[in-house]
Amino acid sequence: MKTYFKQYRPFFVFLIKFFSVYVGLTLLYQFYLNQFDNLILFQVDDFTQLVARQVQKTLLFFNYDSSLELHDNQASVKLFLNQVYVARVVEGCNALSVMILFTAFIVAFSGRWMHTALFVVAGCILIHVLNVLRIALLCLALLHYPEQEHLLHGVVFPLFIYGVVFGLWVIWVNKFSLHAEKNAK
């Protein structure tokens, strides 16, 4: 049994790091979310509201008439395009859970401390910016093709954001992680 642990030590270290970071950040995020009453008062957390405002500003920048309104009977922000209610921005739209998953993988497959920290910060900023663009594009697509909501919201746009995260992971493992450094030598 001891030989198996020795043989698969890098795998176990990866799992321990991944789950430690993932669970730790998820608990912190849940603690943050617990400050808002989304069941009775339908409060929307500040970061989700920030994302909704940034989506609105992105649409306004591209000369689309857009506005926001807090939903009356659910914890979400309604987004209107040309006075048409096209989408609601909920907590799951803010991509923080995607950033947590991204961060856990990068830390678990760590490289040098400074490279790891910089890649996590840069990756999370990129994920955030692309997520705002993703939601803005989704809103435009829903305005013109509302009958394609399931395909757009359920397949195309999640594939985009998770594809970017996967691409960042591949770059990290092949260029910056300790694994890449060992292979380069």
Rank of each mutant, 00 (worst) to 15 (best):
M1R: 14
K2G: 14
T3S: 14
T3H: 15
Y4C: 04
F5S: 06
K6L: 06
K6W: 11
R9W: 11
P10L: 06
F11L: 15
F14M: 00
F14E: 00
F14T: 04
K17Q: 13
F19K: 11
F19T: 12
F19Y: 13
V21N: 00
G24F: 06
G24W: 04
L27M: 11
L28V: 05
L28E: 01
Y29S: 09
Y29M: 01
Q30S: 14
F31M: 08
Y32C: 05
N34H: 08
N38F: 15
L39T: 14
I40V: 15
D46E: 12
D46A: 15
F47W: 13
T48M: 08
T48S: 12
V51W: 04
A52W: 03
Q54M: 13
F62S: 11
F62V: 10
S66I: 05
L68T: 03
L68C: 08
E69W: 07
Q74W: 09
S76H: 06
L81D: 01
L81G: 02
N82G: 05
V84F: 07
Y85V: 01
Y85R: 09
V86Y: 05
R88N: 13
R88G: 13
V90I: 15
E91A: 14
G92T: 06
G92C: 04
C93D: 10
C93M: 12
C93I: 14
A95P: 02
L96H: 05
S97L: 14
V98K: 00
M99F: 02
F102W: 01
F105V: 10
I106Y: 04
I106E: 03
A108L: 10
F109S: 08
S110K: 15
R112D: 14
M114D: 04
H115E: 11
H115L: 11
A117I: 10
F119D: 02
V121H: 09
A122C: 12
L126D: 00
I127M: 00
H128Q: 09
H128R: 01
L130T: 01
L130E: 01
V132F: 00
R134M: 04
I135Y: 00
L138I: 03
L140T: 07
L140N: 09
L140W: 11
A141T: 08
L142M: 06
H144I: 11
P146K: 15
E147K: 15
E147I: 12
Q148W: 15
Q148G: 12
L152I: 08
L152N: 06
H153E: 07
G154K: 00
V155F: 13
F157R: 07
F157K: 05
P158N: 10
I161L: 13
G167V: 06
G167R: 05
L168N: 05
V170P: 05
W172I: 03
V173H: 07
N174E: 04
K175P: 03
H179A: 12
A180F: 01
E181Q: 13
E181A: 15
E181Y: 08
K182P: 01
N183H: 12
N183V: 03
